[in-house]
Design a protein around this nucleic acid. Structure first.
Lengths: 304, 304
DNA sequence: CTGAAAGCGCTTACAG
DNA sequence: CTGAAAGCGCTTACAG
């Protein structure tokens, strides 16, 4: 009791001091597994993500960790590689009682599978690309309006005079909403949306799509809009290799931390952590699911 | 026994099948904390790093995870923010039996503190900037020769005609070896090394150092060599803000994944994981410490 | 071959 | 106010 609580009314100050002194002399460290077993609390939050090398996620992890740590929680990172199989492994792993809650980007798992977790008392915060309707279970979401961000980007390209703009996207994740926003903006301007869809968010996928675009014999696209940075990198490398000059301030912007659509990843992580910690308070699991929006920011630059 | 081993000679095939069938029907998932407590194994490796948003580390984590996962181990990431306090918290955290071993970049902890961990049977693999002598404890290191990489970079700048090259570095971590390599190359060319040292590896630090460089009224440096990418980003932003044009293919190279000194981060992670897993085999803790080198690669480009 | 028992190191309710 | 007991869910050695 003395070691776990800051106040122990039933223990006299002298006894308390004696206990603390002895613990310190012995370098006593409570055994964490035993604690977890007995209290049925791991004091850990899981973060399930598709690819830690995508620069969006380290920023998110930082936000998560900063809030989690201040409440005494650890953050465990589980990399799914964006695959259904990886997400399933993450689910089983969570069902083994390894974390008290989870923040995740799920490309494949849908509400039914997530429900299994939620019913076992593991609250979930999803990183989403749009508003999600309320449900009865402890499943919340945080999102930025991806369709709107994508539309704003597309309008920017159109304003710069581009008419043949091809979008490179992946089959899963936020591509759907991003494609929707792009298509809306194109149609609103009387232009025809063109898509090239690959299975993954990889540089190889971006390069493959760019090769296809470059192989067009007529009416070749004058601008390419990629669903995320990884695809864009692959596409750019390929375009350069083919001898095209790609405006240099796109990579510069990236190195300088100025992505074109600035997603507030640290804030998303912090908000997700707060939401999750709220769920772990007494009675927290009974509230209906919330869907929380954060605003993006478009950084218009001289390129494009 | 049936659930934990792939072969159980003492259990007849029929009984085995009955057990597996029932476990599957019940969706049985073994409780992980209980398992950890009883077996005194967490099946987790800790990765202690200064800053997950430094792109070097996500790559390292991927390498670690890929090897760890194939052996059934999780990877726990502990962010120290490069502070002594963070490293101390990591140590206590490890002493609570939260991981079976640790891979880490330690800016502040030295052998005495690490010895405490090693003596408790927690093997350590350090990410280092130079060869480390053998010791009796289960403390290994993996490294690339930072002094040599730094010297090669400096020679490259000198070959391009630069004579006044200032180096921006931090007080801790790999800066020391990098500064050593830079200084050797400068002196070998008859040039005078100039340093600006800041306390941290942050963009703010890089910017501050660049302001100082730009404020020189005469003999201003014509080239700036930064001890790491984060410092370089800060320095570049500051230089641009001051109206200087910075060659654009540096950031481009970065976005394209081509850092100037390519550190094989995935391979370092994989090697560290292998080394650690070797320590966790029976008798593994008795071997003397090893120091393993991986080769870097200099990517010479048209800039500079 | 299979069932029952002990014990890992805690937390928590209870007895004295 | 303090000490002794129970029990979390496993693994492992042992009895039958």
């Amino acid at each position: 009791m003395v070691l776990n609580k800051t106040e122990t009314p039933s223990v006299p100050a002298e006894t308390r001091a004696r206990i603390l002194k002895l613990a310190s002399e012995l370098d006593y460290q409570p055994n964490h597994p035993a604690r977890m077993l007995r209290s049925a609390r791991t004091m850990a939050l899981a973060c399930v993500i598709p690819d830690i090398t995508n620069p969006f996620y380290p920023g998110l992890v930082r936000g998560l960790q900063s809030v989690a740590a201040s409440a005494g929680y650890d953050v465990l990172i589980f990399d799914t590689d964006g695959r259904a199989e990886g997400e399933e492994r993450a689910t089983n792993w969570l069902l083994q009682g390894r974390a008290d809650g989870v923040v995740g980007t799920f490309f494949h798992l849908r509400v039914p599978q997530l429900t299994t977790l939620a019913r076992k008392g593991i609250p979930i915060v999803r990183l989403e690309s749009q508003h999600k309707p309320k449900g009865p279970l402890p499943i919340d979401s945080v999102y930025i309006d991806n369709a709107e961000a994508s539309a704003a980007m597309t309008r920017h390209l159109i304003e710069r005079g581009h008419q043949r703009i091809t979008m490179i996207l992946a089959e899963v994740g936020p591509s759907a909403r991003r494609a929707f926003g792009y298509a809306s903006a194109m149609r609103a301007a009387g232009l025809v949306p063109e898509f090239i869809t690959d299975s993954r968010y990889s540089e190889q996928s971006g390069a493959r799509a760019m090769r296809e675009i470059l192989s067009a014999t007529r009416d070749r696209a004058t601008a390419v809009f990629c669903a995320n940075d990884i695809l864009a990198v692959g596409a750019m490398v390929e375009a350069r290799a083919a001898g095209l000059s790609v405006p240099d301030d796109i990579p510069a912007a990236k190195l300088l931390g100025l992505t074109t659509v600035r997603q507030p990843e640290f804030d998303l992580g912090a908000l997700a952590a707060h939401t999750l910690l709220g769920r772990l308070q007494p009675g927290g699991l009974e509230q209906p699911g919330k869907s929380l929006e954060l605003k993006f920011e478009i950084l218009k630059r001289s390129s494009a």
